[in-house]
């Protein structure tokens, strides 16, 4: 019974995908053009597109670590904070303050710039 349902769903998915391809085939103006190179202001690319590109990993890693560590410690903290009371709250905010310094530093290093 479950198999029939799965087969019907598969048939529907295949029909939908095939239908979309069919509509695209009927509406298109011509064949797909292969081998188009990237736009370089009207010049030809001199180097292969696969090349090492520096995305400033260190600054971005700092942002990741700051928020990741925050989550790692906040989950267990959230379980016990009600029992521990004001002391736990104070400790967490001191910890968040330290992380915030890291975020501000990474921001100053350009991790949050989009240019």
């Amino acid at each position: 019974m479950a198999l029939t349902g799965a087969l019907v769903a598969l048939a529907l998915v295949l029909a939908a995908a095939g239908g979309l391809y069919g509509v695209a085939y009927l509406l298109r103006l011509g064949g797909t053009r292969a081998g188009a190179r990237p736009f370089l202001s009207g010049h030809d690319a001199a180097e292969h597109a696969v090349s090492r590109f520096h995305v400033r990993w260190y600054a971005i890693t700092m942002i990741f670590l700051a928020f990741d560590m925050e989550m790692v410690f906040m989950y267990p903290w959230a379980v016990v904070v009600a029992e521990q009371g004001a002391k736990a709250v104070t400790e967490m905010f001191v910890f968040l303050g330290i992380l915030l310094v890291g975020v501000v530093y990474a921001g100053r290093e350009g991790a949050l710039r989009w240019t």
Binding site: R33, A45, E47, S51, R52
Partner: peptide, 16 residues
């Protein structure tokens, strides 16, 4: 009107 199939024949550009 049909456009050329492949814009660039030729070899792949070299690695940087």
């Amino acid at each position: 009107r049909p456009a050329p199939d492949s814009v660039h024949g030729g070899a792949e550009p070299e690695m940087a």
